[in-house]
Amino acid sequence: MRTLRYQRPEGVEAAVSAVNATPGARYLGGGTNLVDLMKLGVETPDLLVDVSGLPHHDIEELPGGGVRIGAAVRNSDLAADPLVRTRYPVVSQALLAGASDQLRNVATVGGNLLQRTRCLYFQDAGKPCNKRAPGTGCPAIEGVHRNLAILGASPHCVATHPSDLAVALAALDAQVLVEGGTGPREIPLTELHRLPGDRPERDTVLEHGDLITHVRLPAAPEAVNSAYRKARDRASFAFALSSVGAALEVRDGLVHRVRLALGGVAPKPWRARAAEERLRGAPATPEAFTRAVEAELSVAEPLRDNAFKVPLTRHLAVRVLCDLAGRAGGPR
């Protein structure tokens, strides 16, 4: 019989050293993903270190206009925060597009970033999966994959990252503050998650024992004009087939600042840098938006049953940009 230990340390140091000392340890936040995976036998931790009691519950305004968010902040609290809603509406919208009220009341910011893929094969401990059991193969490539990646996948894994929040944070160049026992460090959110390559078992660059303590949103004046949109199989309570987080500032009809990230289409929140590059200085027109997004998606490699995601994502991204361009002159 498997036994499982549970700890609820008082401080960050104690939490980190507890996990560092136990190879099979996991941090526990809201548990909305980890506990599900434990029930499925996908995660089999020996030790759960509950970090929800650590002092990471605050949303603080930083000098210079940024915001620092504690990793234990609940999704619902973050979505409702007035500072976040006014300065970074894309974050609030992304959170509200995910899960249900009940889940958002429990799920934490740190846990949201580290949730695992909804790929059916990853969730099924009885099936091969390179992400769950390295070297066993990827049945999704020939199997059920309509919801999986069109960008950034590898012959070893075609999973998508399920987070909505992470897409918004990727667009905003958020920094992830990590404590790993050797002092705090910052990782750009766009570099937190890995592409699978030949090591799909590693979702992120974090090492065992690394604890996300905060997420820092840098000042981004254009984020006032930002939005998140998500296409899914029903109106609520479903993961993204495709999603777009974007911020846009237009001056004299030209794109001055733009931030664009895609979700539900890649193993990580997909910062659309190629599209952004094309857009800077370009006219803020539907045609220019379309060309830019097409450039981003030109590297897409859809599978047998998910080619629909390419035009879906293009339409969605162009719409968000058009919408933001329409509003750029002021509130409607």
């Binding site: 296409a231 899914r232 339409h315 969605l316």
Partner: peptide, 16 residues
């Protein structure tokens, strides 16, 4: 938004 395809997912303002 609830009267539109996509609902609260905010996928359209009526375009298309």
């Amino acid at each position: 938004l609830r009267a539109l395809p996509g609902g609260l997912s905010n996928t359209t303002r009526g375009e298309g």
